[in-house]
């Protein structure tokens, strides 16, 4: 597995999930915001996948077992609270990751320096919505807690070291935990008690072991491209 593929797949798959919100968001401003984040991520994915090969071949012609994204990003949108919980977990992770990469001299330093600005915006968006939903109404609090709880078990995988990504994974994990805990507490939410990883989820996505909704997502994403082999679009 190349590191570019792992990071690129994360961005590609999450971008796709966010794209599913188009036309369904709770308020017009969120149509703009979610599409904006999806576009940023797709831009990152295209740069990263191009480092690993041909972006379209990689996106549209690999099967499920060859994708290297973490399982967190492939989780279905469910509702706005689940979507925000997924954004919170991932954007805090991605920001810490890109900050370290931008500070280093590896092959991703240039990309990370640009992307970290986008990701800071994503994190800000996710944090503010976590606060609004957690500390909003009784219903929004309950839904946000449910989203945060449901996705917690997928967060351990974020910190499984990726070969070729030269960063301090332990400090990434520590700062992630501190940031996420701080946001959840300010949002009057309970930090989930369960394990952040287990036998099933630990590092599975990075090894090409995914969750069931992912195959269906790929079927939709790849269907047209695969129906016209060799065509250019």
């Amino acid at each position: 597995m190349t590191a570019a593929l792992a990071l690129g797949d994360d961005a590609l798959v999450l971008s796709h999930r966010l794209g599913e919100w188009a036309g369904h968001a709770p308020v017009l401003e969120e149509e703009v915001a979610l599409a904006n984040i999806a576009l940023d991520l797709l831009g990152q994915a295209r740069v990263l996948l191009s480092l690993a090969g041909d972006e379209d071949e990689l996106a549209f012609l690999r099967e499920e077992r060859a994708f290297r994204n973490v399982q967190l990003v492939e989780q279905p949108n469910v509702d706005f609270a689940h979507t925000i919980a997924r954004q919170l977990y991932f954007s805090v992770y991605q920001r810490g990751l890109y900050e370290q990469l931008a500070a280093g001299e590896g092959e991703f330093a240039g990309l990370a320096a640009k992307a970290v600005k986008e990701v800071a915006y994503h994190q800000d968006h996710a944090e503010h919505w976590t606060l609004r939903l957690g500390d909003g109404t009784a219903e929004s609090h309950q839904r946000m807690q449910r989203g945060v709880d449901a996705l917690w078990r997928f967060t351990g995988e974020l910190f499984q070291p990726v070969e070729g990504v030269e960063i301090d994974w332990q400090s990434l994990q520590n700062s992630w935990l501190a940031t996420v805990t701080g946001v959840l507490e300010r949002a009057t939410l309970t930090v989930p008690a369960g394990p952040r990883s287990g036998a099933w989820t630990a590092g599975a996505g990075r090894q090409g072991i995914h969750t069931e909704p992912f195959g269906r997502m790929l079927a939709e994403m790849q269907h047209l491209h695969r129906s016209h082999p060799g065509a250019s679009w």
Binding site: L12, L42, R46, D56, F60, H223, W233
Partner: peptide, 19 residues
């Protein structure tokens, strides 16, 4: 068609347009 766009370039263009 966002979820089914046949290339990443077209997908980005379409998402930007809907935005």
């Amino acid at each position: 068609w966002i979820s089914r766009a046949p290339s990443l370039r077209r997908k980005a263009i379409l998402m930007a347009k809907v935005q």
